[in-house]
Design a protein around this nucleic acid. Structure first.
Lengths: 215, 215, 215, 215
DNA sequence: AATGAATGAGCATTCATTCAT
DNA sequence: TATGAATGAATGCTCATTCAT
């Protein structure tokens, strides 16, 4: 079992590549790593494969990364933040179409990154990574929660639901519904999902009002 | 990488154990497998460890299972069905406390089985398994959906939401919210979560009425 | 670079072999390790070769030893003590023939063990081992020195030489002369070497007297 | 494992460096090689490290040397001869102080070169090198032996010892005593060692006489 | 049936050497 | 000439699986 308590998240590169060509190779390795992790799973992928998929020799992998794990970390660091949702201004938008668009974008982004499919496997054995991911999730959750609090002050959302639970629900529905439905062979209807999420937030009459305000 | 396209789901046991002692060993192996998969992850656990944790020799493992994978399959087969929710009769229960109880039980069951933590890792590389799980999920989904359809005929639920989406939402919220909140260090309040789920289903006034009917 | 500060000299076996066959395999591995270390040098020998020379699979090597290093340590531990010279009683023996016999035995033993040829290489990089060997050498040196001190009290050895230096000289001559001469293609004449060593210890007239006393 | 049976001892330089800069680089590489071989052992040192220690690129190493081995050879060739002891004129010197000085110088030189610490490792696997070293040792031995023979003709040394054995003893004591004593944590007293060596050569009364002759 | 020693293919990693720049 | 990134064969070690006892 490998030990890595004292490493930073991404750590030093074995040697910092300075030339253009180098950066290209590093990128190719990252991209190949991502593709293979998603395709076959983290554990099922090895450094040799990543290298050969990237069109470089095995040894080259180790010039740029100390480890399969470090490559994974680099991938995550780059991209976890990109998942932060934009701050909505509820009075200016049709919440349903706002959410529908947001959901679709979000899921496309998730799919592009793809790493969410390998995360569960990793979180189980890399508690350091688990922390990083938990922190990122908490950040997203906090932003949603704040949004909801503002909305409540404006009196435009249900007043009998616990906002913390609502925001976690929104997160989970955004992340997992498309995943589960796809897994089970169904198509995701982002509009319907948006409606469901809106129902968690807005009483139907308020929602109606908001829609009217825009036009 | 082992090939197993043509195998059945669980396959023949290398020899069908008919005697008590045998059955005990098989059970011990299953239990040890489950414990270790949950504790360390599927990939990180090996047959030798499972055997020694179960107090038998390595070779004995292979008398009862062809494979770590087959043991996993057996674990899943046994237990996926147990997750089917009971058919509720909405006119007889307070939906909120019904859901709260259901959720808590469900999550406790999930935790007892524990395997949901290893599933994502497996689904990625074992499409046969993925199908089994998808089927089980679809079964649960179908039952929830039917419930909702009955309720709609009774006119007691929102009439503008897509029932398919709603039932997926209920499933996902039941499965994932507790997981995510625990991962991120929050306590789950099953009552609040039940209220949120109820809001997806029942208009507040109907819910009020249902509660009154009981008493 | 491997870390092994906290290990004992030989350490735990990966698993203690209890059966006869096992012990035979372990012995075969030790013997093959010794033969190959001597033949090709420590660094030039790898676990796979040792295993195949011993007629077992690579993995079997690792059942009995954690490491090439551990095998080496086992070899040394067994045998360093065997090099302790017997305590001589100068009044009972002809020193020259005593030394001649001793030298020949000693060198044959060294050659049988053979490990002295690989030691210098190891001492350079394994300070823990270096300590063990230094300790063993000091033990031998101490015994020789004590012998000499007794002899000096009996007034039978040169009184103007530093006994510490003399005993180191005896050790070095015993160990290294045969080695160097062989390396350079000369035959060792143990009788002549014994005479030289005796000259370091006994004045010629005393030696004469000692020889007479015996007969 | 590289093959080099058909190479000459040192071989052609990949390109004969004629310019100053080149010679400086070559020297820097030699010096770095020596330093690292001594510090970490021959096997533990690689070309990349030598190059980087010498402040040049990896590839540059291979412009000047075909091999780590060739660099080693160059180091040895340069310096083995330097170990030749001067021809003493016994009638002009105090043998004890002559030897004491000689020993100290010799050991300092050995330490400066340092390579004697890596030699044993190399001799084992490079029989060509072993020959070179054996030849150098034989040369030194021959010179000592000749010295002793002259002295014997002058009747100033023990007449009952085998001169061949004595000269090997002198060599071994000169080379190894300081090494062993240092290894075992003792200080070397060159004067005492000189006295011991003198005892191997000169009868005490002759030595006394030689000392008197000088003053 | 049960055991656990033995197997050897497979993976992560290193490093001597080459070669495009 | 000089560079250092790239190469890929070789090494140490693991582990799923077999099989003699």
């Amino acid at each position: 079992m490998s030990e890595h308590e004292d490493e930073q998240l991404v750590g030093e590169y074995p040697s910092l590549p300075k030339q253009k060509r180098s950066q290209q190779k590093r990128d190719a390795l990252l991209e190949s790593g991502r593709a293979l992790f998603i395709e076959k799973g983290y554990e099922q992928t090895n450094a040799k494969e990543i290298a050969s998929h990237a069109g470089v020799a095995t040894g080259t992998f180790y010039r740029y990364f100390t480890d399969k794990r470090q490559l994974m970390m680099s991938l995550l660091e780059d991209q976890l933040e990109k998942l932060l949702p934009p701050e909505p201004n509820w009075t200016n938008v049709d919440p349903e179409s706002f959410f529908a668009t947001l959901l679709e974008q979000h899921y496309k982004r998730l799919n592009r990154l793809g790493l969410h499919r390998v995360l569960p496997e990793l979180l189980l054995k890399d508690s350091q990574l688990a922390e990083v991911v938990a922190e990122a999730r908490n950040k997203i959750h906090a932003r949603i929660l704040m949004s909801l609090k503002n909305a409540r002050e404006q009196g435009i959302i249900w007043d009998d639901l616990d906002l913390d639970t609502v925001s976690w629900s929104i997160m989970v529905l955004s992340d997992k519904i498309p995943e589960k439905m796809t897994e089970c062979g169904n198509q995701v209807d982002y509009c319907e999902l948006a409606k469901v999420i809106c129902r968690l937030v807005f009483p139907p009459d308020v929602l109606q009002q908001l829609k009217l305000n825009i036009k």
